[in-house]
């Protein structure tokens, strides 16, 4: 259907769709219009902004790395191994996707705070606590980012031609060689997409981080937390930081466009 037939034959559909587009476009436009372009460098140069930028870079990259380290074996098990309770495990992994992040933060507190199920033992044994530390922020971000990596990579593993792995095995390749020379190259696009998605999700994480790790400048105050806090005291800094996050999101979408925007 061409756009002119759409307007002629389905005017209501066209109108509602246009509202939806405006709903997304207007706030983003507002952000651009209200952005203090001239004072952008000095706003981003403030101590709070620099701390938040640096911290977010460190924590989101760490969370993405952890997602790969633990998520790749998990995705492989979910895609390749038939074990009892597999769908249960998959449901558990996917839960953080729909769980409100604040609830995730509360759950992490229950497990890893100084009084938590595991956290109390950790503190007794090593005198080590996760809450209110950068490690805690990384943990909260990994909690919400990992599912994105796992579902993307599991889908990649399931859609690849498994027979290439079988042929490789008959040619004498041990499981590790099969994975390195056949599986990894085949799922490379999913691997990249999963990592970028997990990283972007970790970068934007707010609820679980603020609940579990708190809001300490330089230690746990990541970009989204800084945006929220600065909105009261220094709105120009908040908008400047928001712009940074928006640009990153745009870059991610453009980078993954072949995956999402074309295949429908």
């Amino acid at each position: 259907m061409t756009s002119s037939t759409l307007l002629r034959r389905r005017p209501l559909t066209a109108l509602l769709a246009a509202f939806a587009v405006a709903f997304f476009a207007i706030p983003l436009l507002a952000l651009l219009v209200r952005a203090p372009w001239s004072s952008l460098p000095e706003n981003l140069g403030t101590a709070e902004a620099r701390d938040a930028l640096r911290l977010s870079l460190v924590t989101s990259c760490s969370a993405a790395a952890l997602s790969v380290v633990f998520g790749l074996p998990l995705a492989w098990c979910l895609a390749r191994v038939e074990f009892p309770g597999r769908s249960l495990v998959r449901g558990l992994v996917l839960l953080p996707l729909v769980l409100p992040p604040v609830v995730g933060g509360v759950a992490l507190l229950g497990a890893f705070s100084r009084q938590g199920l595991v956290g109390a033992r950790l503190y007794d044994l090593f005198g080590f606590q996760l809450t209110f530390t950068t490690a805690g922020a990384v943990m909260a971000e990994t909690f919400v980012a990992l599912p994105f990596f796992v579902i993307t990579v599991e889908a990649g593993l399931r859609s690849m031609d498994r027979r290439t792995e079988e042929i490789a095995a008959t040619l004498g390749a041990d499981p590790r060689t099969v994975f390195r020379r056949v599986t990894l190259p085949a799922i490379a696009p999913s691997l990249v997409a999963g990592t970028v998605l997990a990283w972007a999700r970790a970068l934007g994480e707010f609820g679980a981080t603020v609940t579990f790790a708190g809001n300490i400048v330089g230690r746990t105050q990541t970009l989204p937390l800084a945006v929220y806090l600065q909105l009261e005291s220094n709105p120009e800094v908040a908008v400047a930081l928001s712009l940074v996050l928006m640009v990153v999101s745009l870059v991610v979408i453009v980078a993954l466009r072949d995956r999402w925007l074309v295949s429908s």
Binding site: D161, R163, T164, E166, I167, A168, A169, T170, L171, G172, A173, D174, P175, V178, R181, V182, P185, A186
Partner: peptide, 27 residues
């Protein structure tokens, strides 16, 4: 399978798409 010394030729070749033809044969 990797210790059986068998060669399997499937119906639709199933070559390794990421490797060159030469490396497929040398795999």
């Amino acid at each position: 399978p990797d210790r059986r010394r068998v060669g399997l030729v499937p119906q639709d070749h199933v070559l390794f798409p990421n490797l060159s033809v030469l490396d497929n044969v040398g795999f």
